[in-house]
Design a protein around this nucleic acid. Sequence first.
RNA 1: CGGGGCGUAGCGCAGUCUGGCUAGCGCACCUGCCUUGGGAGCAGGGGGUCGGAGGUUCAAAUCCUCUCGCCCCGACCA
Length: 569
Amino acid sequence: MKLSSMFLHTLKEDPRDAEVVSHKLMLRASMIKKLASGIYSYLPYGLKALKKVEKVIREEMNAAGAQEVLMPAVQPAEVWKESGRWNVYGKELLRFLDRKGGEFALGPTHEEVITSIVRDEVHSYRDLPVNLYQIQTKFRDEIRPRFGVMRSREFIMKDAYSFDIDDQGAEKSYDAMFKAYERIFSRCGLRFKPVEADTGPIGGNYSHEFMVLASTGEDIILSCGKCSYAANLEKAEIAKPESLDLKQAPEGAPEKVHTPGVRTVEEVCGFLGVTAKDLIKTLIYSTDNGIVAALVRGDHDVNEAKLKRAAGCETLELADEGTIEKFTKAPRGFAGPVGLSIKKIADFGLLDAGQNVTGANEEDYHLKNVWLARDAKVDLVADIRNAQEGDLCPRCSGGTLGAIRGIEVGHVFKLGIKYSKAMNASYLDVNGDLKPIIMGCYGIGVSRVLAAAIEQYADENGIVFPVPIAPYPVIVLPVSITDEKVMGEAKRIYDELNSRGVDTLIDDRDARPGVKFMDADLIGVPYRITVGARGLNEGVVEVKERSSGTVEKIPLGEVVDYCLARVNV
RNA sequence: CGGGGCGUAGCGCAGUCUGGCUAGCGCACCUGCCUUGGGAGCAGGGGGUCGGAGGUUCAAAUCCUCUCGCCCCGACCA
């Protein structure tokens, strides 16, 4: 491709509303263009990069035995009502009516559609297993899109769905996808980590996320320094204590203190001169299984997914002011376990606590010297808080958890029969018995992979594309386009590289060399061949490697082979 | 949805508080000269009606009301 005719308009300055490097650089490198909040066009250079990522994904998916399909972006409400998610999915599902008043939605994911296809087409165990995937535009009406295509509303996703006759088969399918994902992200040159994850509204019972490690990531990962355990914050467990008995309390009674207007943990600490660790936070939750009080140490945070499990409920949210007053007899900020008659679930972290400060269930009063074992009847002790740095590993002995940030680029789920049961996707087994198909689903955020790669591979001069996803692995840069010798040699190298299968750019713009160098750096081309009169006199050109910055002088006759050897991975 | 910030040319910004000449600067773009190994220089030029609507005023980018959009923090959500 000739830069003189390419639709590429780079920017010198950072656009104002870009925060993270990948967003800034994708805009500056003329890869994307915003149309509305969370909705982007891909310009030629960005699309080319996207296609490279897709190519890697396709190759590995096909190699793993999956077959490509393409499903509609617009989906009728009908299938969503069948699966039961029409009423569950919430505002992220963008709904609308067609001219006849029929209800439709823009697909945020395709479990319903694929399940309806497979249930019509598959009737026998002989048709299974099967794995179908697509690469397609999804729409999720995110409450707050941000960071460019990292978290956009419209985005490109590869989603695959596996169908098996039994759990053993489903396990194999899951495993095959897990391995394919490891190959995909490795080939893209990413530093990543698979972690155990919560399943969220997609459902199912087991899942892993693939996280690209980056300080700007929105997800927090906890991983053990000693063994291979790693999990998303929402899922991360904490080592189970040896005993679930509360610490024995001495004789005595809590002492009431006047704490006017003091509500938050910080305020209480400041007012009473204690630390957050000395406090017990009492959070009142409304659930489909009644009201519960969650007790955690003042410096810990409740993990709602864990609390749901412990409380045995499906839905759960922090109680509103009125509910709190009704059950604690005090406004928000003064709840405590002593004398509280609702179900109380205490966190492991409180097992060896004593002499705590808690709310008094009375406006403007707290209690000092509270011992859970003595003063409050706790119904259950469980793991209900977020893990944090320094916590003990749940899988090995002696390991501690560290926290790092990551960008979720892939997610694999075991769905079981959630959808096949709801939507009647079944098959006849060898014995002629009708059984539900066991499903799995596997997503990769294609556009997010691109953003994550740039997040991981950039420097002060711009993008540093890894070769496998570089839109163009090589750029030929003639220092002067008016020098016929220089231009002729540049053209020759450019043509030869292209004819030998290397996507190559040539900067044939009538611009000063400095401008060309800056642009080549900005757009992140891995190898730059500089052709100038100086070098030609010695019979050489210069090849600069973007990632290391090293420059080598290569004889004219060898430069094509030199590049081929570096670019064909 | 709550809090904060911002909409002036393709991009980055000044001007707004304290209304008043033809709305300005840098980058990008066009023409010419000159220059050609890390964002050159000179000269000339095109492009905006100040997010939108209404109002106040002799006069509105500037003041008032409404409205739309964008960004950040949070809540929410994968």
